[in-house]
Design a binder for these strands. Structure first.
Lengths: 246, 246
DNA sequence: GGAATAGTGTCTTTAAGACAATATCTC
DNA sequence: GAGATATTGTCTTAAAGACACTATTCC
């Protein structure tokens, strides 16, 4: 960083106080809908409004650790092994928090369907909301959510992270359902099936078969688990929207 | 953010002071090499070491504005119209700055070949360094640079941002050279040529032709300028490295 | 003239997408 | 049995990559 500026401010009191928080866009799929974890704000500002879960980064706490802690606190889940967590973007517009200068480092999380958080003791007030209904959020969280959704949709194209929305074992149809819900459009069952199996390391067979077929009929599908690939090659691209290009 | 934590810290003095800076990974191409803008640190810590240009975010200054200001200060260039600037990632590990808790919001910039910054008055001490030689940087800037390079390489695949490394008008060969330098591998001239022209909106013809051919011979190439596409469809993918996948 | 480059043409291979067919289940 | 699903097969088209060829231009 520039020397002049740094020296001028070496005294920590020389600058107005700033704060750093993490906010988490935690996504999951419930009842075939893409949902985001929200909390209800009790105090001003934005009292009564919904917001993304988050909070201050503690002294001597790293950013990733802070986000993970916030997520664990709000979901009440200790078993966070299968959750994917990645940094999304940092928001720091002056005025985004009326009280003081607050920089928010947003994170994006993918979680398999979890028990309702309000059931867990400490985390009352947090709940999953379908993303279409998650509007009019506190602070600039509408923007944060929108950025998180776009990132999530893009990541499904070239990473196997869709599997983190599923349980340990899943069927190809369940995986297709995840893609359909996140992308908001149906995918051709036959072509999707072949594509998933043709990408090396995307999924691996468990050798098992589901105990029963679908609710409305059909054969017992085979079960798979996540493979060892970190990237999909070739990628599984969304149906092209010419509009997005220009 | 979590209510309890926020209220507990509403008094700005309640938490240890933290600072927020922006650091910029500014890339350009000089003499067929990918170069990054570095400054020499005069003061401790890391006195004498090279670092990415950056500095404090000022009160009432947005993050993007701070990064743009830092870049303009160090390059001494006011005409920053054709520079691409995007947020990269935020680094906030405790201890990354020995003096106090500093969060750095890193930015990534692509610039066409610029006059040497040391020529510009205020910006003495900043200079372009080939990325392979930009090692042992101050703070965690080795990591920041590595993340920036990976982002840059990925972005060339699905965006037309390679054109921001070129001048207003360029030849297909110059564009190919940019890809080759950033990716570190040669590309097949004929196939690249056809590919670039086949992607809608990537480049558009100026109707002009260069005044002379290449130094070592060849016909006068046609000139192009950046098109209106924001994304490349289909993408221009790097030659597949199987290793990166697992 | 010799060598290198710009730009095009052709062919092969891979992957995506449309569509069909069959066997297997649930209700 | 009716209707839905899992899985596989076939065909068409788009795109990538390998290679070849011609016309230009610089030295």
């Amino acid at each position: 960083m520039g020397e002049k500026e740094f020296l001028a401010s070496y005294d920590p009191g020389a600058y107005p106080a700033v704060a750093v928080t993490t906010d988490v866009v935690a996504l999951t799929i419930r009842d075939a809908r893409l949902c985001v974890l929200l909390v209800e704000r009790a105090e001003h500002p934005f009292a009564g409004r919904r917001a993304l879960p988050g909070g201050f980064v503690r002294p001597d706490e790293g950013l990733d650790a802070a986000a993970l802690r916030e997520l664990a606190e709000e979901t009440g889940v200790g078993a966070l092994e299968r959750v994917h967590l990645e940094q999304l973007k940092t928001y720091g517009n002056p005025g985004r928090d009326p009280r003081m200068r607050v920089f928010s480092v947003a994170y994006l999380a993918f979680a398999p369907s979890l028990p309702d958080p309000s059931a867990g003791g400490d985390a009352a007030g947090a709940y999953w909301v379908p993303v279409e209904e998650a509007t009019n959020l506190a602070f600039d969280h509408d923007d944060v959510l929108a950025d998180g959704l776009e990132r999530a949709r893009a990541k499904l194209e070239y990473t196997p992270l869709a599997t983190t929305f599923a349980g340990d074992e899943f069927t190809i149809s369940e995986l297709r359902q995840i893609y359909a819900v996140v992308w908001g459009e149906e995918l051709h069952a036959g072509n999707f099936h072949r594509k998933v199996l043709s990408v090396p390391g995307f999924v691996e067979s468990t050798g098992e078969t589901a105990t029963r077929g679908g609710e409305r009929g059909g054969p017992k599908p085979k079960l798979y688990r996540a493979g060892d690939a970190r990237l999909l090659h070739p990628a599984l691209l969304r149906p092209t929207r010419e509009d997005d290009v220009r």
